[in-house]
Design a protein around this nucleic acid. Structure first.
Lengths: 192, 192
DNA sequence: CAATAGTTAGTGAACGATAACTAATGTCAA
DNA sequence: TTGACATTAGTTATCGTTCACTAACTATTG
C-alpha cells in the first residue's frame, strides 16, 4: 500500500480537514481547494472518497504497528518499554496535532463498518501488545501483580487518550509533552 | 430548555442515528423516516438541524450536571462519591448504549465551534467537580496525596472513557457494568 | 375560527463522481 | 536523432443525487 507523493499529500490534507473542521467538511471540493488543483484531479490518485479515508486509516495503522514493534523489540524492562511507547506518542502528536485529533476520535468513522473495523483493529493492536508488555513486567516483578493486565492497560492507555483529547479540545494550548511526562510520573507510581 | 415530547423523540432518534451510522447519516430525511412522519414536520419542532444537535448536547449537559450535583451533595466520603459517579455512568450507559457512543465521542462535533465549545464545557464540568472531590479526599487522607488531582482525574476518568469506547466499538458485546466494577476495583487500589 | 401539527411539492446549493479534452512527459523503432 | 504514439496528470463542463429547508395547503382540536 505504498502511497505516491500526491496520494500522501491528499491524505495529509484530509487529516487536517477532519481535525480542523470535522468529518462533515471532508469533501472532495475542500480537499482539492486545499491541494490547489481541481476536484476531478483527485480521482487521478484515488478511486473514491472511500479510498482516501481508507488510505488514511491504513497510514494510522502503519504508524501504530511501527511504534509498537519498535517498542517491543528493544531489550528494555517493561516500565521503560511503556514509557518509551507513551513518550513516542506525545512526541509524534506534538509534531502533528491534526493526526492526534483524528486518530483518537474513532467515533468519527462510524458511517462505514469498514472504517470502524479498521479502528477496532488498531485499538486491538495497541491493547494486545501493551498487555503482553504488562504481563511480562508483572512476571518479572517490575509491575504490581494485583491488577490484571487488561485493567492496567485501560488505566495507562485511557489516561493517555484523555490527555490527548483534552489537548485537542483545548486547541493545543498546553505543552503536551510536559503534561504527558507529569501524567507518566503519576501512572508509574501507581503501577509499580 | 424544556423539550416537548416530540422534540425529545427527535433528539433520541438523532442520538441513535449518530451512534449506529455516524454523524454523516444524521440527516433530516433519516430522522423523519425513523420518526414516521415527513421531513417538513421536523421543522414544526425545531428551527433547524443545528437546533436539534444543540438540544442533544444540552441534554447531555443536563444529565452530566444532574449526576455530578447528585454525587456531590450526598455526605459520602470521597471514594464513595467517585464510585457512585462511575457506577451511575455505567448504569446509565448500559441502559442507553447509543448515548454512550455519542457522548464520549466529542470528535464528532468538530464541524461547528458552538458544538465543540459545548463539549468542552461538559468535559470541564466533569473535570472540575471530580477534582474537587479528589482534593477533598486527599485532604482527609482517604486518597493518596502524592499525585495531583489533575493527574488522578485523568487516570480515573480516562480509563472510564476508554472502557466505554471499547464497549461501543465492540458493539456492546460485553457486560459494561461488570467490567466497570472490575476496573473500579483496580483503580481504587491505585488511588488509595 | 385560531392554533397546532401534519401533508405534498419543490427550492437552490452542495455532494461524489464522470465525460471529454489537453498539455507535458516518456518510450522506442526508423 | 527524430517522429509516432502511449501514459500521466491536469482541465472544464456536467451528471444524477442528496442535502437542509420552505411554501402552500389540510386535518384535528379547543
Amino acid at each position: 500500500m505504498e502511497l505516491t507523493e500526491r496520494q500522501q499529500q491528499i491524505v495529509n490534507i484530509s487529516i487536517k480537514l477532519i481535525a480542523d473542521q470535522g468529518i462533515q467538511n471532508l469533501t472532495i471540493k475542500n480537499i482539492s481547494k486545499e491541494a490547489g488543483f481541481s476536484e476531478p484531479a483527485i480521482y487521478r490518485h484515488f478511486d473514491s472518497k472511500y479510498a482516501i479515508i481508507m488510505a488514511m486509516l491504513d497510514s494510522f495503522q502503519d504508524i501504530s504497528r511501527f511504534v509498537l514493534t519498535e517498542t517491543e523489540k528493544q531489550g528494555l524492562d517493561s516500565i521503560s518499554k511503556i514509557k518509551k511507547f507513551l513518550f513516542d506518542r506525545y512526541q509524534r502528536f506534538s509534531a502533528n496535532p491534526s493526526a492526534a485529533k483524528v486518530m483518537f476520535a474513532e467515533g468519527i468513522f462510524r458511517d462505514d463498518p469498514r472504517y470502524s473495523q479498521k479502528m477496532l483493529d488498531i485499538m486491538h493492536q495497541h491493547a494486545s501488545t501493551m498487555q503482553n508488555i504488562i504481563r511480562e513486567g508483572q512476571f518479572k516483578g517490575e509491575l504490581r501483580a494485583d491488577i490484571s493486565a487488561r485493567e492496567m492497560f485501560r488505566i495507562i492507555f485511557g489516561s493517555l487518550r484523555l490527555l490527548i483529547n483534552q489537548w485537542g479540545l483545548a486547541d493545543c494550548n498546553f505543552d503536551l509533552k510536559l503534561e504527558g511526562e507529569l501524567l507518566w510520573i503519576a501512572v508509574k507510581k501507581m503501577i509499580t
